[in-house]
Design a protein around this nucleic acid. Structure first.
Lengths: 130, 130
DNA sequence: TTCGTTGCAAATGTTTTGCACCTGA
DNA sequence: TCAGGTGCAAAACATTTGCAACGAA
């Protein structure tokens, strides 16, 4: 894999964000540095980087994938109101894989867990967080 | 909400399947009964039914949503080779919500956990299930 | 020189929607 | 009757891809 300034810029940008931006958000930001970069290049690099395990793709169910510079397995929270995606600093729950393996005929490699609710910011915005 | 034969047919079909078909698979099957039904109607009804909680939408990350007639919370297995989605009959892991709630400033309502691996059928197909 | 990478634009695949017509209550 | 549901086709949206030009080694 050759070096490319565009790919490096994408990695740099992603490493500065603790939220987990979408391809489009990344595109908007990288354009400040590379005004002519195309969305295709963004997607090609995000796919490439997640394929080789340098970043993590998050499919939260809001219609578009999010990307995380942190490749250490951890869990995420998704706000059902503002769709923000946050890291959860919580004790390991990886033993649920053992629970799932019991009586399952195939092979289970990993789990992917998302927690849904209302983030603190949205809770403040309206008292009755319906 | 008025009765509609198309919606009833979708529910009937979904209730007979223990795998979790996509909108397109549902479309192909309902067409046997309603040759002129449109994909728009399929999607409108799947959205409607999942909004009122009569079915469950599964976003597994393979590009299209799957639908489950069973609305009792349970966990799913996704085969990374053939993309089949299976129900897991396993002990409850809902206590992970409590783990996540610890030190989290917002409100956590529920979790959604997918287990990934190779299903028994794919394991048989090739011995070295890479 | 060579092959990976890019920008661009067109294509893809899934899902949504506007609208005129139909249908259930 | 009439709000809600449908079929159809077009649109929307996220993502992928073909291709000629560019750039790194």
């Amino acid at each position: 894999m050759n070096y490319s300034r565009q790919r490096e810029s994408i990695k740099d940008f992603l490493s500065t964000r603790k939220d987990h931006p979408t391809a489009d958000t990344i595109y908007m930001n990288i354009r400040k540095q590379f005004p002519n970069i195309s969305l295709g290049t963004i997607y090609r690099n995000l796919n490439l980087l997640s394929d080789i395990g340098e970043i993590t793709r998050l499919t939260t169910g809001d219609g578009c994938d999010h990307y995380d510079f942190n490749t250490v397995p951890h869990n995420h929270f998704v706000c059902t109101r503002c769709h923000s995606v946050l890291d959860l600093e919580m004790d390991s729950i990886d033993d649920i894989v053992e629970v799932a393996r019991k009586n399952f005929p195939g092979r289970i490699d990993r789990h992917c867990t998302y927690f849904y609710g209302i983030c603190a910011e949205c809770m403040d915005t309206s008292e009755e967080a319906s």
